[in-house]
Design a protein around this nucleic acid. Sequence first.
DNA 1: CAGAGAAACTTCAAGCTTAAAGTTATTTTC
DNA 2: GAAAATAACTTTAAGCTTGAAGTTTCTCTG
Lengths: 174, 174
Amino acid sequence: MDERKETTNATGWVDGETKVLEAPGDHGAELRLWLRLLTCSTLIETEVRRRLREEFDSTLPRFDLMAQLERASEGMVLGEVSKRMMVSPGNITVLVERLAESGHISRTTSPTDRRVQIIALTPFGRAEFEKMASAHADWIADLFGGLAPKDGAVLLDELAKLKRSIVASLGKGS
Amino acid sequence: MDERKETTNATGWVDGETKVLEAPGDHGAELRLWLRLLTCSTLIETEVRRRLREEFDSTLPRFDLMAQLERASEGMVLGEVSKRMMVSPGNITVLVERLAESGHISRTTSPTDRRVQIIALTPFGRAEFEKMASAHADWIADLFGGLAPKDGAVLLDELAKLKRSIVASLGKGS
DNA sequence: CAGAGAAACTTCAAGCTTAAAGTTATTTTC
DNA sequence: GAAAATAACTTTAAGCTTGAAGTTTCTCTG
């Protein structure tokens, strides 16, 4: 990419290594961590989006939706897709419209409940998805390739702990 | 939040813990890692966006842009902001318009180069930003609060390694 | 110093995303 | 069995985001 310093688009603290703003409670360590986490996932996500667009003329949301459908051979209800993708129902409506238009998914109204829409990959959609998924796995493997297996294992473990911390913190609020 | 299983909105592989799809090259470990990383950063980002909206009627992009300006007392050129935030120039144009409208930033044409726009926080904008930044630091500290200091240090270190891997991989392609 | 080229935005078309409000259909309650 | 509540979307308004094309303003070459 380029030689740009570490920056972020979600905290605003430039160069987390050396210049994190000192908050009253001195939350510098957490901010630095968050910044670095965000930098990594932004870099990866941006690259994945770019390649999906350039190599498959597709987008990440489309890919994600198809991925949800991939192992649901009987199809899936819109609400379930919405929950799994953690996005709003209205969002799914739009995505589904486009994917149906392009022939990647089929759409039927449930015979037992006319409120319910069931979507499923078409054979064409499945074939397209498989191509994308295979390439996607390679891209990710490449991006993580410089990480020693041991580091990968440690990172996976630490991220599990972080996730528990996040979920616990979110839980308190509700 | 809720008791939903680990899911993602950028890979489609549900429940990274147990069910990652086996790619031909067996990239399961990397996919699992990516999924977990993404889950963490999505959870945090979603929460930060929610709170910025609810507590400050603001958005993450706005906050980010103001954060870039926060330590640039002399103001900053749009192009520089765009680079630091890693977003497109067109995006900055729109954000700047709105922030100028709401009185958070000022905007002047450079006296030496009429192509160049210089933006800076207004006193009002600075005051608003400081409130937000302080709250933001608290939110992050909360979300990471369940992580032992030692785990934080390890995570920071592993993420540095990951970032190097990513940057190296991106560099190869160009 | 004129024309070519590069820079720094701005505009445009398209798509993603959300919260909130609106529809339609099913279930629950009295 | 109607009215009320609930569910499952869909629609709407607003904002974010991008890549590509367009405009204006320097800067560089010959």
